[in-house]
Structure formats: C-alpha cells, structure tokens
Design a protein around this nucleic acid. Sequence first.
RNA 1: GCCAGGGUAGCUCAAUGGUGGAGCACAACAUUCAUAACGUUGAGGUUGUGGGUUCGAUCCCCACCCCUGGUACCA
Length: 469
Amino acid sequence: MNKFYVTTAIDYVNDTIHLGHAFQKIAADVLARYYRITLGKDNVFFLTGTDEYGQKAEKAAKEQDISPSEFVKKISDSDQKEQDSLNISYDRFIRTTDSNHAEVVKEIWNRIKKNGDIYSGEYQGSYCEGCEAYYTKEDLIEGKCHIHPTLKIKIIKEENYFFKWSKYKDFLIEHINNNPDFIFPKHGAKEMLKFAKNIKDIPISRSNFTWGISVPNDLKQVVYVWFDALINYLTGVGFLKNKELFSKFWPADVHILGKDNLRWHALLWPAMLKSAGIGLPKTILVNGFLNINEQKISKSVGNVIRPSEWTKKYGADAVRYYLLRYTNIIDDSDISEEKLLQAYNADLANGLGNLIARVAKLCERVTLKSSPTPTLSQDYKQGIENFKFNEVLEIVWSRIKVLDQQINSSEPWKVTDQKKLTQILQSSVNGIVSVANELKPFLPNTSEKIEEQFKGPKIISEKPLFPRI
RNA sequence: GCCAGGGUAGCUCAAUGGUGGAGCACAACAUUCAUAACGUUGAGGUUGUGGGUUCGAUCCCCACCCCUGGUACCA
C-alpha cells in the first residue's frame, strides 16, 4: 500500500453530533494518523463532513423560521467544532451543500443515465416522513412504520426516477464473495448477501420537497439524499475538480460507517460506481454503537452528550483514550463518565503520567543522549491495520508496566555512580520515547508533549500530564 | 417470526478438546524517584440453563433462556 484514503460517515444535520458519532471519527483519525507515520503525510487523505440535503433538514429549518441553508450551516459548524474538540485531523470537512458537490452529483447521474440505469416511473407507496422512505405493506406494523410508530403513514403517488439496482444483483453478490475484505466484520457480508438476492430498483429522486440537488434537466425533482450523500466520497477527494488528487487517492481504502448504513455502502454505492465506470472502495468498516449507562443515546432518553462536554473536562486525549481502549469498534459498547474517570486515573494518571513524572525527575541528575528513532512493532502494526485499537493500547500499556518494573528493580534513586545512573535512565528514556511514538495515532497531544520533554540532552520534570481527579 | 453476532472474575476483555487468563476495582506487604504513585503477593469463577458426543467440553452437537443488530434508508 502506498496511499491511504479514509472516510467517515457524513453526519446528517438534524442535530449536532454526540459521543456515538465521535467514536467513529476518532477511529478514522487513528487510522489517518497511523498511515501518515507509515506512508508519509502526503499519502494520506482523511475526509469527514456533513450531509445536509433532504426533507428533514428543510422541515427543521421551517420550524425555526430560517432558511434551510442557514439552518444546515449552523449544525454543520457545530459538528465541525465538536470534531475539532477531539483533535480529529481531517484533511477536508465536506458539506454536501459545497458548490462543487452538486456538479459531481450531476455528472454521476448523467453517467449512470447514459449507461441506461435510470428510468422514470410512477411510484405509489406508503411513505413515512420520519424515515423519508416508502414501505411495502408487509413492512408496516398495524399500518405504522416500526421506527416511527407515532407518525402517520401517507399514501403518496410520485413520478420518480428509478435506479436499476436489480441489474447489479449478480455483480454485487460476486464482488462480496470474491473480496473477503470488502466488508468488515465478516458477518456483515452475510447480511448483505441475503439482501442482495432480493434487490429491487429504487426511486432516486423526490418531488415533494425542494431542498436538494436538482435532477439534471428536470427542475421538479431533487436527488434522493442517499444518492447524493454517497457521492461525497468522490467530491471530497477532487473528482472533476482536481484530477491529480483524485487519481492519487481513489479508490477509498476504508469507508467507516455505522452499522445502520451498511446496506447503502455495501450494495447501493458499489452499484452506482460500477454503473458510472468508477472503481470500488476496498473496505467498508462497520462500527457498532455506543450506549451510555446501558441506554441508547437518544434525545428522548435525555442522555445525549456532546464530545466537547467531556473534552472540556478531561481533555481530548483522555476521551480518545477511554473510547479507544474500553470499547470494541465492531460491537456495541457501553460507556459511562464513571468508567472514563476510572480509566483516566488508573491508566493515564497512575500509569503513563506517573511514569513520565518519575523518570523526568530522576533525569534531572544526568545528561542523556538523544534516543534512537523508534520503530513500530509488528503486533502493533497488525493491530491497527486490523482495527483492533483496544488490543493495541493494551500492548502499549504493557510496555509502560515493564518500564515501571525496570525502574523499581534497578532503583536509580539509590545509585550514586553517575555512569551507571546515566545508563539506567537512558534505557528508561528510550523506552518512553518509543511509547510516545506508539501513542501518536491515539493521543496526539500527549505524545507530542512527551517527545518534547524527553528529547534531551537535559530533561527536567514538568507539570503532570494527567493530574489525578 | 426469520437471519446474524454475543452471553467467561464486580467491570473491560483474552484463551484453549486436556487441572480457567490479563488489566481495572478490592486487600495485604514492600518501597520512596513519582500524581497517597510504582512494585510484589493475595482474594475473586459449577465459563447463561439443560441435555448429548468424548477417557476428558468453556470450546463440538441439540434444545432452551437472555442481550444486541438486521429484516428497503435513526452514527
């Protein structure tokens, strides 16, 4: 691999992102920072952003009596601030309302149409405004959609454009079967294969609202939000606008997305790309959801926490550490502020922070050489490349433990021989520099501080990195 | 209902057809360079339930219970 292009889901602007969304951005950020180390800064592109068109955004804007574009800008800005509070190192924060995105969507639309995969037809169905989706009778439970049981299902008849999704059934099945790394984790692939067998064409335009990208040559219709949203991955990396950038980074190496979005990424997106004559992404990484205190994160429960609420109190690195170390990216995980505190004190204050403090203090008595440039171990690399962030952090913390043990057994505070003392401390410092290097993708701020403090030749103690709480 | 994943120490998670592991939390001891920290030791489990295969099952098979997700658009 000589380049790495990673994307996150772009978040829909019905509300500012919370910790659940943030978790995914952090995971993407770890990958981006890791590959910047191994492949070079210029060979990594990290895209995130906001998904802004659609009926729900239009409706929400109306309720606040502002224009849709004002409304979505407000949410998009606050999403970006939330990501910034976590130190997410995106290369571009795309908004689907960015002017060049519409051009790209139209280009893709035209290509797919030229390929004979878009046709117009009449659609009549049971429509749920909550989902912005049509349902078949079999899907409805007592005439209501199972996601929004309080909303009335409307019977709507629409003239729509359809995408010949069914044409790609065999292609999709074959692609999933032939590319075991395409969907991670693997059991996601099984689900998709099952769905793919019964794939039907879908309407990809809407005419009952206007907040969207117009269908080429038909001003009455706007492009269906998913169809437009997926294309952000092309726009984001310069399709049409910056050919050099695009050809360098496409196809995407990893799309990270929530498990609710798997189908669109594993089945619709590849079909669209195939139809438009564009290469397919390599891996679709499906992340689980977070629960807080064993409850779903939701407005109605009232347990929504913005990342910035935690980063203000504990710092970005502590929040990143906790989420990466004590969750599993694939499965749903349960988090709580109490557990964050526990991890903070045990691992960051007593573990990493204390090691830094004790060694720095001891080092004030000696002058050291600068440490050799650390290399990343195989188990570390494999762990990150296989998305096992919790295991990798466990490895790093086991090294911290070993360094503590070595200090205890060599008892440098008792050593009076200057040469021997220097030797002992040099070894500890080398270990610390190596740990700092391994922490780069996970705790970027902390890692930088440690490297600065321990670059030598004079090392002095500083304020604690993580004061006990 | 159907499909998939999971159920191992209070918590987060490993592991293997052959006497159940780590970290955190807890206790004792030791120690002082450090953020009452670090280290050592200890306690802590009928590995969801009931059957079966086997010399032997936490692991394989069957049934059941519980959790999570998917089942045409909520990260």
